[in-house]
Design a protein around this nucleic acid. Structure first.
Lengths: 200, 200
DNA sequence: AAGTTGAATTATACACCGTTTAATAAAGCA
DNA sequence: TGCTTTATTAAACGGTGTATAATTCAACTT
């Protein structure tokens, strides 16, 4: 077969990314394969390699959208609270909630590894760091007379802590039964952390 | 070829686990394959499947040793300090140090995923939880009049936080330059956390 | 209208992967 | 000696990501 031109490059890109989300959401990230994506959109693998550099590239592009959606969720959840402490708590809860409710989409972001020890391209990182920069505003209110750089690093420390809970829960390395006790664990962690921030 | 009996089953097991460590340490966890292990010890893949249920089984058995070594490191580092706060800090530092210095061995533990969504067998989990139970003793000293269950959960919260730093650093999702600033981040995190524990 | 060009698309192949199976060679025993 | 048992391998199956050459067709040229 030759030129069909049923879809433009941009359309094929859309189809591929949509199919990727569908496969990952239904079967899990580690079940994703180039062949599955291709057959889902009615093209062969070769066509995908015309539009994406390789599978890593495709996944990263899908993850940009993935991160965008999480950003929206976190932002909106946080807005509902006024006190800075409550906003930070809402943030942590929303993040863990996403992890539990959309495990495969969480997987796609945090269990993806580059092949051949290739580094993650620089254009990707900002989409991640944008997430936890959400913490900086409420944290700044809590840390009255602190340098901006201090706030920034504290935000990252808090993000690490919350993400650690998600990670260990998802990888079944936490000896935790059910999602309820993870919630408790996160609450304790946040309680201690916020107490520490206010005291210091 | 048929029976050679150059090695007993137990000897082949040893050879395989040793070869696994060598391959992982030199090439990285994601470069590990059954065929590589087999050829490294001078046998074919079939022989490995006589001794291990599958690759997951082999990796888990290797990780038991891996975790044992980390446990020794953490234990000894911790012993050098007397004050409970210093012991907890030493623990966190040693853990991050291991992550940075032995990234591939860290990978083998925390980036291994079961195939086909199989659950991690129950006999494995204790080897992980044994690690962070090390935190409980010094934490108990710091939390004078707290229930043992409270101490236990606080230890896990702290473990989550420290592990979160390692994870995000290793996966290049932390926007951090060099290992020095990760150290700073961890110090800040621990400072805040310990302050929170003492205050609460 | 016919011919040429160039790009879209596919078919095919390569080198891997984990796992299973049947064939085979040798050790131990009668 | 021959027979049974078992360690070991070779080969195959169905999968993977990726590269390449062959096709087919739209659009442009003459």
């Amino acid at each position: 077969m030759g030129r069909r031109n049923d879809h433009s490059r941009e359309e094929i890109r859309e189809l591929a990314l949509a199919a990727t989300f569908e496969i990952v959401t239904e079967q899990g990230f580690h079940q994703l394969s180039v062949r599955k994506i291709a057959s889902a959109i009615g093209y062969t693998v070769g066509s995908l390699y015309l539009i994406f550099k390789n599978l890593d590239d495709l996944i990263l592009q899908a993850n940009v959208r993935n991160l965008e959606i999480i950003y929206q969720i976190l932002q909106q959840t946080e807005k509902k609270q006024k006190k800075p402490e409550q906003r930070l708590l809402a943030f942590a809860h929303a993040y863990l909630h996403f992890t539990i409710e959309q495990p495969y989409r969480w997987q796609m972001i945090f269990e993806h590894r580059m092949q051949n020890n290739e580094p993650v391209p620089e254009w990707f990182e900002p989409h991640v760091s944008r997430l936890f920069s959400l913490l900086e505003a409420p944290l700044a209110q809590l840390m009255a007379d602190a340098e901006p750089e201090q706030v920034r690093q504290t935000a990252r420390a808090m993000w690490c802590a919350v993400h650690g809970v998600s990670t260990l829960y998802m990888t079944e390395k936490l000896e935790v039964v059910g999602s309820e006790s993870v919630q408790n664990l996160l609450d304790r962690l946040m309680g201690i952390f916020l107490e520490g921030v206010k005291t210091a």
